[in-house]
């Protein structure tokens, strides 16, 4: 298998992101968020002098998780709304006709789109996430226990969502694919919060809602793994039982079995996308 077609399509996808100003829109939103967080963390830093060092770390790590959730939302919106027009839009407009009449396999085009979008999402999460971590370090002195693991899990979360967005883009219109992907992302997060509340109440039925949603779409599971990597190690014991189910507190790191499931999920969805795209009449 030649890498020429996937790499050409990946480069085209990245160029599309730059030329269609998706990069600039996402950068502008990120700069606003980072600026606000820098101002907020500076204010928090001033207040931290009145707290113990443990309390200060706890506050900084929790606010960091809230801000990083905002960044992950921007990454999710950016990649899904780029994935929709990039594939479904090309099919709908007829742009795909001249492209796919070339001597190439549709699976190579799909792989190229996926690589380009994944590179876009990963670069964004790494640059914006690292900037945020440095802001927190400078303003409050807090540095998370496993920053690289956290950023890697955020990048994986973005990749999982764009894989779903590409699947949807092979079947429905560009706008519908973006809306459904972001809607499912939000619904899974809410289901995760509901599940957390169920766990804190000892209600297994409600708790299962979160477990099932994390299996069906692993974005929330990955987000919880990322939170675990960013939050202070002593956060759980310090916050105590009354904060069980708090949406920006992760109780356990991700297991190897769950990460294997994420990989399997991504491969299965990618395979379904490939089959769906290969069978589609243009």
């Amino acid at each position: 298998m030649s890498a020429r077609i996937p790499l050409t399509v990946a480069a085209m996808t990245l160029r599309e992101a730059v030329r269609r100003r998706v990069v600039w829109a996402v950068t502008a939103m990120t700069v606003v968020l980072l600026s606000l967080s820098a101002w907020g963390f500076q204010r928090i830093g001033a207040e931290l002098d009145t707290l113990t060092s443990g309390e200060a770390r706890l506050v900084a790590s929790q606010v960091l998780n809230v801000v990083l959730f905002g960044l992950s939302l921007i990454a999710a919106l950016g990649t899904t709304f780029l994935a929709g027009p990039s594939l479904a839009g090309e099919i709908e407009s007829g742009m795909a006709l001249a492209l796919l009449a070339r001597p190439l396999r549709r699976s190579d085009v799909l792989l190229g789109k996926w690589l380009g979008l994944a590179a876009f999402g990963t670069t964004f999460v790494t640059v914006a996430g690292l900037s945020q971590l440095l802001i927190v370090r400078i303003t409050t002195g807090y540095w998370p226990p496993s920053p690289m693991t956290g950023l890697a899990l955020l990048a994986t979360q973005t990749t999982v969502l764009l894989t779903l967005a590409l699947l949807l883009a092979t079947a429905v219109s560009p706008m519908a694919s973006g809306i459904v992907a972001v809607g499912l992302f939000g619904a899974t997060w809410i289901a995760g919060v509901v599940g957390g509340v169920g766990e804190s109440l000892g209600n297994q039925g409600v708790a299962r809602v979160g477990t099932v949603s994390r299996m069906l779409l692993p974005t929330d599971g990955l987000w919880r793994g990322a939170m675990q990597a960013f939050q202070d190690r002593g956060a759980l014991t310090q916050m105590g039982a009354e904060f069980d189910g708090f949406p920006f507190l992760s109780e356990a790191p991700l297991t190897l079995a769950y990460l294997t499931w994420v990989l399997t999920w991504t491969c299965v969805v990618a395979a379904i996308t490939t089959m769906s795209f290969a069978r589609r009449d243009l």
Binding site: M12, R15, E16, R19, R20, S93, G94, M95, L97, A98
Partner: peptide, 8 residues
């Protein structure tokens, strides 16, 4: 239906 990458 001739459409080409309008950003190129």
């Amino acid at each position: 239906l001739f459409r080409y990458q309008h950003w190129l």
